[in-house]
Design a protein around this nucleic acid. Structure first.
Lengths: 155, 155
DNA sequence: CTAATGTCTCTAGCAACTAGAGGTTCAAGA
DNA sequence: TCTTGAACCTCTAGTTGCTAGAGACATTAG
């Protein structure tokens, strides 16, 4: 039997994340020790590894929940799993397309920045000049899953 | 003078988002009409278009805040703006690399799904089999800004 | 036995919005 | 002029997928 810390270590998932997964119901409530600490078997380790891997692949937790409920009924058709994976692939492709366009625009911006003053800075100017934008004006309706925010770029 | 709705339409930004930007201080508090409604000039439209464009490029609001404070002091060097843009470019490149790897893995998974039952579904199996993962085990320390979650894939 | 580490629950916070309640103001048509 | 309906106001709470902290209890190594 594994404690929560060992489980997290084995699966590559942080301890609070495991408790969070239990809270939202994608991991079952485990046994407890005499002192009320969670104890897990290898079944849960497999399940958690599955979740982690799917998260790494970009699947949202709701999709993972669906996948898990499918794998709990192994006699069903795998068509549903296939659909989920294909949707995921479409979303990933769309993101790559979009990010590639962004990369081009950023590269242009940086090349044009001649280390002058802000007044004639191409970076700021490129950001101000919406007309030179390669993307359209549709933000909400742009592409499926097009939420390309990057964390920790500059504080 | 533009009302908030017209401003949002002109800049391609939703009304609650504008109020949110004001709340977090990246848009100034505007004038008000006699009936307490917000009224904006073209200065704010420019600023909002700048924000929207930068968001489209994936800049986080904190980076945009820095960029805006730079552009408020036009005599400074643009080196800082250059640094921010370069960080952004690095993050975008890392995301593309990562997403391309994910795309390959998803494609493999889907090709192998022979429309059988869950019991021998390659999609589920590929997700369970952590050993066949092309990525390492480092999640937190993977790549800069590597948070590739996709929304709205499956409910 | 004690000290250090691990675990417990609970609450609050992060980004970047979005949605809703319940009320007010404005512009246009009859 | 009145009236309707859209747009606006403030405020709170929800979203996703966690992360961080407080204060208390459990376990384990020396």
């Amino acid at each position: 039997m594994l404690t929560i810390g060992k489980l997290g270590e084995a699966a590559g998932v942080k301890v609070p994340t495991i408790r969070y997964y239990e809270q939202i119901g994608i991991l079952p409530e485990p046994e407890r020790s005499a002192g009320n600490q969670r104890l897990y078997g290898t079944r849960t380790l497999d399940r958690l590894a599955f979740i982690r891997h799917a998260r790494d692949l970009g699947f949202p937790l709701e999709a993972i929940r669906d996948l898990l409920s499918l794998s709990d009924r192994p006699d069903q058709s795998c068509a549903e799993a296939d659909v989920i994976a294909k949707e995921q692939l479409g979303a990933v492709r769309a993101r790559i397309t979009r990010l590639t366009a962004l990369k081009g625009e950023l590269e242009r911006m940086i090349v044009q920045c001649a280390q002058g003053t802000i007044a004639n800075c191409r970076v700021i100017e490129a950001l101000s000049d919406h007309a030179s934008c390669t993307q359209g004006h549709q933000r909400a309706a742009s592409m499926a899953g097009g939420d390309d925010n990057i964390q920790e770029v500059a504080s």
